[in-house]
């Protein structure tokens, strides 16, 4: 859980109170905290004068607008065909071993969540993952461990 505080107000100031402000607002909240709490969604609904169900209904459609708690760094491993052919499972296994979590889980210290995703557009440099917004490509099990250890030290 994070404290919603003035967050929603700040986002509304930035993006406005129109219906088409909704996506940018939700995206920026996720950009900062990696997922949407019920509290944040209710707050957004109030500011935009729409029902909380509308906000939740919109958010739940989009796989990057998580409504479940996620860690500070969300790792998304591409599972579409080329990445899958070029060693995706080895990458996934290496991350699971390092972080001691399974796919779909979040580390106890809330630092990392591990998910799969569909094609992220790096097939020519497969296998690839996203950590929050950043792509990492042409990975090997060794290389991905270095990448994640880099985040552990941040």
């Amino acid at each position: 859980m994070y404290n919603t505080g003035n967050l929603v107000k700040e986002m509304v100031e930035r993006h406005g109170r129109n219906r088409d402000s909704l996506m940018p607002i939700l995206q920026d909240i996720v950009g900062r905290h990696n997922y949407l709490t019920d509290e944040a969604m209710v707050e957004v609904a109030k500011e935009l004068d729409i029902s909380a169900a509308e906000v939740y209904g919109t958010a739940s459609f989009y796989s990057f607008l998580d409504t479940e708690p996620r860690g500070r760094y969300v790792i998304r491993v591409c599972k579409t065909i080329t990445c899958s052919m070029k060693g995706k499972n080895d990458i996934l296994g290496a991350i699971e071993d390092l972080l001691k979590i399974k796919l779909g889980e979040t580390t106890l210290d809330n630092q990392f969540s591990l998910l799969e995703t569909n094609c992220i557009g790096w097939c020519h440099k497969a296998p690839a993952i996203l950590i929050n917004d950043m792509p990492y490509t042409e990975l090997t099990p060794e290389k991905v461990l270095d990448v994640i250890k880099g985040y552990m030290n941040k």
């Binding site: 219906r19 088409d20 996506m23 919109t58 459609f61 989009y62 607008l65």
Partner: peptide, 26 residues
Amino acid sequence: FRMGSGAYICGEESALFESIEGFRGE
């Protein structure tokens, strides 16, 4: 600029409009 949020269907033109307008990308 308007951003997507991880939904392939939003590449379909009318779903993309829905998404820009702040709705589910249907």
